[in-house]
Amino acid sequence: MIVVKNLTKSFGTQYALRGIHLEIQEGTFLSIFGPNGAGKTTFIRILSTLSRPSTGEILIDGKKLQDHAESFRQRIGVIGHSTFLYDELTAYENLQFYARLYSIPDAKARIHQALEEVGLKARADDFVRTFSRGMQQRLSIARAMLHQPDILLLDEPFTGLDQHASFMLMHWLKELKNEKRTILLVTHDLTHGLELAEHVAIFVRGKVAYFEHTDHFDESEFQNHYHKVVAAGGAA
C-alpha cells in the first residue's frame, strides 16, 4: 500500500505540488489526469525516487520511501515517454545492462522471456536505433518489467505512438493489470486512462482535486466532470 502524506514540491518560489494526500491500495490501477503543469509528472518523479519532496512523506508498506530509496527501486518499474534505452546497443544488450544493475538471477533466460512477451525475440540482436517508436516502447516495457516490479509508474506512455502501437500498449497494460500489480498511469488521454483504471484522480494546480473509484461515477459523464473540475481550479 502506498500512502502519500501532505506532499509538496517547490522549485524556487514555484510550487509544483501543494499538499498531496493519497492512499493507493496494493494491486490498484490508478489513472491520474490533469492539465499541463498540474504536478502529475513531478508526483511520479518523487514516487520513483528521481526527485526529493520539499515536505511531506511517502510510505510504501509502512516504510518511508526516502529512507529506503535504493531497496524500493528494486520494486518499482517506470515507463515514460523516454525509453531509457541506448541506441547503439542491441535490444538484448540493453536488457542485459539493466539486468546487471537489478541483479537479476538467471538473467539470460529472463531477458529472452521478456523479449518474447513483448514480441521482440526475433529482433534481440538488432540495434535499438533501427526500431520504430512503437517497438522501442515495447522494449521499454520489457526493460521496466525485467525485474518484475510490483509497482509500475507510467508517465504518458502513449506519447508518440501510432494507433497500432497504442493498441499493443493497451493490451500489455491490461495484462499487467490482471497480474494485480499496483499501477499508476499519468495521462492526458481520458479514453485510455478510464478504460484501464479502477481509481481515477484529477490533479489541478499541484493538488488532488478529485479521487474516486470508477464504480462510483458514470464514465460517459467523466469528460464533462473533468472539464468542470479543471475549470474550477480544483474547487468543483
Binding site: S82, F84, L85, Y98, S103
Partner: peptide
Amino acid sequence: YEIDKGCFHGLLLSPVD
C-alpha cells in the same frame, strides 16, 4: 548521450548506489 533518451534516469531509477 545518457540524457538523449532519458537513459540517465534509467540509471538513477535502478537499485544502484
